[in-house]
């Protein structure tokens, strides 16, 4: 992972009245792919919206490529020039074509020269494999195609910081693989932050993972270090291990257990990101999240 700092937050927090959406977080994000992992309601979207300058923090600062994104409007505008953002909730003007939608967004990203702008729109449409849908109205696109259109708008202008909130939701396995290829290529020279509750996305793409739960950071480090936290805690046996945080029957017919005290006959298994996630957050946290 490159050490070039793209974003640095200091004691960044968000509150809504008496509800804390994000406890103070101090992070440094550099080039490469960083996963924001956590259950629903963990604070991922809040953090990513704060980084995208789509909302103002209650306290704390964000410095982005030399600009104080929590400072003056001029500073925020400079920071926004470097950001590509895919919100979690996708809203589109259904009557517009994919091309005209992207063309409008490109104007909002200060692409004022028509010829260059149209070339850029065609470039990002090709990147997300929607070139053949350019003239289609957005309302006629499938859910996966709309998701890719949202990703296309975030890629306009080749931003140095790409913030994606649940980008793989609604994509089929082929589209997901295609997106992973695209994002991994982007991560080579830029910073990509991926908020997700899909552990397989983090395992497949990210060099670093930040685990959020209850609006707090529970882990921040390399994915390999995160997986290592579950080493010696994952078991395969004919029955669930007593005291396991989670257990399920695999396709081979054996029970995979995460955590707990294994019987002598249990076979140790290589942990995955999902195992580490289940082990770290525990049943209580996960059940709390499910009730939100």
């Amino acid at each position: 992972m490159s050490t070039a700092t793209v974003v640095r937050t200091s004691e960044l927090a968000k509150r809504y009245g008496s509800t804390t959406a994000l406890h103070p977080v101090s992070l440094t994000i550099g080039h490469g792919l960083t996963g924001l992992l956590g259950p629903n309601g963990a604070g991922k979207t809040t953090l990513i919206r704060l980084l995208a300058t789509a909302m103002a923090p209650s306290t704390g600062t964000i410095h982005m490529l030399g600009h104080d994104a929590t400072g003056s409007l001029a500073q925020r505008t400079e920071a926004r020039r470097a950001i590509g953002y895919v919100p979690q909730e996708l809203t589109f003007p259904g009557a517009m074509t994919a091309f005209s939608f992207l063309d409008y967004v490109a104007v909002l990203k200060e692409w004022t020269q028509r010829t260059e702008r149209h070339a850029e729109v065609r470039r990002v449409l090709a990147l997300v494999e929607l070139a053949d849908r350019a003239g289609k109205r957005v309302r006629t696109l499938s859910g996966g195609q709309r998701r890719r259109l949202a990703i296309a708008q975030s890629l306009l202008g080749d931003p140095q910081l790409l913030l994606l909130d649940e980008p793989t939701a609604g994509l089929d396995p082929v589209q997901r693989a295609s997106l992973r290829a695209l994002l991994s290529a982007r991560g080579a020279g830029n910073a990509v932050v991926l908020a997700t509750h899909q552990t397989e996305d983090v395992a497949a793409l990210c060099e670093r993972v930040i685990v959020l739960a209850d609006a707090r950071v529970h882990f921040d480090g390399p994915v390999s270090a995160f997986v290592a936290t579950a080493a010696g805690s994952v078991w395969l046996d004919d029955r669930a291990v007593p005291g396991a945080r989670a257990a399920w029957r695999t396709g081979s017919g054996r029970m995979r257990s995460v955590g707990g005290r294994p019987p002598a006959a249990a076979q140790s298994a290589d942990p995955s990101v999902e195992d580490a996630y289940l082990l770290m957050l525990g049943t209580d946290v996960l059940e709390d999240a499910r009730t939100i």
Binding site: L73, T91, F92, F101, L108, K109, E110, Q153
Partner: peptide, 20 residues
């Protein structure tokens, strides 16, 4: 409304609401 929808889809953009 359409302008607002597009802006919401793009999240944060350098062009201010006042300009829009």
């Amino acid at each position: 409304r359409r302008s607002q929808t597009i802006h919401a889809a793009a999240g944060a953009v350098p062009v201010a609401e006042r300009t829009r």
